[in-house]
Every structure is written in structure tokens, then in C-alpha cells.
Computed example of a mutant assay.
Amino acid sequence: MQKHLRIGSLFGIPLFLDPLWFVIFVLSTLNFGFAYQEWGAVMAWSGAIAMSLLLFASVLLHELGHSLAAKSQGIQVNSITLFLFGGIAAIEEESKTPGKAFQVAIAGPLVSIGLFLLLIAAANILPSNTPSSIVIGDLARINLVLALFNLIPGLPLDGGQVLKAALWKATGNRFQAVRGAARAGQILGYTAIALGLAVDYFTSDLGTGLWIALLGWFGIRNATNYSRIATLQETLLNTTAAETMTRDFRVVDAKQKLRTFADLYLLDNSTSQVYFAEADGRYQGMVLVDNLRQIERSDWEIKTVQSIVNILSEIPTVEEKSTLVEVINKLEKEQLIRVTVLSPAGAVAGVIDRGDIVQILGQKLKLRISDTEIRQVKQDGIYPSGLKLPLIAKSTKD
């Protein structure tokens, strides 16, 4: 797995460079270096390096615009990363309303337009046709292109985020809005690939055509990812604990002696490892085998199961109506192996572990997950590597 290089932080937001950033930095420097050759070799390459650094500073400020808009809404921003195709701000969760989502989306292009206006004004003040005025003028135009390009209405571009906010406002359904903006992004991506191939064919400019096609591929890939995550988030919110839980536990008599309990259940490896005690027709709580081990064996003939019960009010529980978002967040926040599901009457209705969550999602989303994989998840207590459920659940809001 590639590791990003941390280069510092701004406003408490860590800044990173993807290794592939150096590729585009070199290509950018070569492009400007050859363009500025009339200044002489030393001045041309110095200007090219400065131009490339200022270009990526502009991208960083663009992403910082999104990030500060999100932070102003109380949303955590985990990082900003510069990579091959520009930059990305890792914003932890969605804005609460379409209007606030629009504010975050438009902030980046507004920063770029602001930079364009400031830089073009500075270029006009400086003596014309000097290296400094040319570099600043080029940088101004690039910021304008950056703003206009990002406003194209399709995810993952900022214009796609603006479109998503508009569709969200119109439909009242955030997930439907994401899928609509993602479809627009996929169409744009396929169009870019076709355009890139056309440029290659009709002009023999392989570099430009390949770059346009790569941008199209990147757009399709990320738009598809947006759509899949939206569908998963919607499923997590629409699936309840009652649908997910199993009754993979045993109910034992709270009044029986510990010796009897151990002989009946603990010596039989085929029985469930989750036990609940009941007495007089009511659940008393969960029986923890670790509690049994803390009691002297000589007392097993005297003490009852009730002595090792953790009452229901002291164990982690959720209601039957709780969403999978709530269940997953509880499992992760409290580092639990499983959680107990209570009925409206306060009785034990079932239990949920990570394997149960993967199983219900596999059924609802028609994922290819085998019974063997589900058993492995239950045993290890770890979700499959490609299913980032803790992160997705944490970022999901109703």
C-alpha cells in the first residue's frame, strides 16, 4: 500500500503528497521550462520550477477552501492530499442540508476565481513581458481554468457536488441526488475517453489524447465509487437491527448451580458461546464465562448462575428499530465483539456481530460473499478488507 508523504499542516489539517505527485510535478516543470526557453536556460528552468510549485499551491488553496467551509459547519477534515490529478480533501461527513453542501462544494472554485482576479491584477501592475509578469499571468489563467473545469456538473468534480446539492434540494433525497450526479460524472468520463481517442486519431497528439482519456477514466472510477457508497449508506440507514440479528445464543436457568451450568454447556464445544440467564420467565442478563473463571471451583456447587450474570442494563444493547449505522458505530466505538438487541418490552430479541452485518448486506446488495467468508468474519471480528464499513457508517447521516 502506497504511503503518502506528510509535508505539514494548515489550520490543523494535515497535508500530504501522493508519490505520483512527483510525476506530474516533473512533467509540469518540463512543460513550462521548454515554454520559457527564450529567457535563457537558468531563468527558464527557475521560472518553470517556481511555476510548478505555485500551481500546486493554487490547488492546495482550492482544497483548503472546501476544507474551511466544511470546518465552519463543524465537520472534521482529516487531511488534504495532492496527487496525480490535483488534490482531494478528506472531509469526514456530509453537510446536514443541501444549502450547506452547496457552500462546501462552491468554496473551492470561488477560491480559484479569487486567485485569478488577484493574480491578473498583479500581472497588469508589473512591467509587461517580464518573466515575473508572464509567470503570474500564466498562473492566473490556470486558476481560471481550474475553477471552470471543476464546475463541470458531474461527480467527482466540484460541479458534480453542486449538482448533487441542487438535486438534493429538488428531491429531498440525498442518496438519489448522489446517484444522479454520479451518472452525470460517468457520462462525462466516457465522453472524455472518446474525446481523448479522437484527439489521438485525428491529431496524432498522443500525450494530450492520453491525458484526456486518463482524466475520463479517473472520473468514471470515482463517480462509480460515489454511487456505490451512496447505495451502501442508504442500505445501512434502511436496515434495522431486527432484520440483522440472529438468535445464536443459549438461554440458561439463572437458578442452576455453576457446576451444572459448566457440565451442561461449557464442556460441549458445539454449543453457542453466548449465554443469557432467565428466571421466572424474565431475562436476567448475559452470562459471562470469564466471570465463572474468577470463582473458586469449590464454590461452583454452592453459587448459582445468577452470581456471574451481567444484568441487561450493564451490557451494550441496541433496540430492534436501531439502524445498521447505529449498530456499526456502537461496535466500533466501544470495541465490541457483538451487541445485544432488545425488544420493545426489554427482552433479549437477538444478537448481532460483524458477520451478521456482512451477511445481511450481502443479501440486500447481492454481494458475492460466501458462507465461509462470513464464518471467518464472525471468528476474527474483522470486516472484509474491501468493505470499509466503520468509515462509511461514521460518515453516514440520516
Rank of each mutant, 00 (worst) to 15 (best):
I7R: 08
S9M: 15
L10F: 14
P14W: 14
P14L: 12
L17D: 02
L17G: 06
P19F: 05
F22K: 10
I24S: 05
I24Q: 11
L27D: 02
S28P: 00
N31E: 12
E38P: 01
M43T: 10
W45N: 09
S46N: 14
I49W: 11
M51L: 06
F56E: 00
A57E: 15
S58D: 03
L64N: 05
G65I: 09
L68G: 02
I75N: 06
S79C: 05
T81S: 06
F85C: 03
A89F: 15
T97P: 02
P98H: 11
K100S: 14
A105Q: 01
I106F: 04
S112D: 12
S112L: 08
L117R: 08
L119M: 15
L119A: 14
A121G: 03
S128C: 07
P131Q: 06
S133V: 09
N143P: 07
V145M: 11
L148E: 15
P153T: 02
A165W: 01
A165K: 06
A166Y: 15
L167K: 08
K169A: 08
G180L: 04
G180S: 11
L188K: 03
G189F: 02
T191I: 08
A194N: 13
A198S: 14
S204Y: 13
G207H: 09
T208N: 07
G216Q: 09
A223S: 06
S227W: 00
T239F: 07
T240V: 07
A241L: 07
T246F: 07
R250S: 10
Q256E: 15
Q256M: 14
D263K: 15
Y265L: 05
S270P: 09
Q273K: 12
E278A: 09
A279P: 00
M286G: 02
M286F: 06
V287M: 00
W300I: 10
T304W: 10
V305L: 00
I308C: 05
N310A: 08
S313A: 08
V318Y: 03
E320W: 10
S322D: 13
Q335C: 00
T340F: 03
S343W: 13
A347V: 11
V351P: 04
D353P: 05
R354W: 06
D356I: 05
I357K: 01
K364N: 03
E373A: 04
I374R: 07
I374K: 06
V377S: 02
I382G: 01
P384K: 09
S385M: 11
L389V: 01
L389R: 08
P390H: 05
A393N: 12
A393C: 13
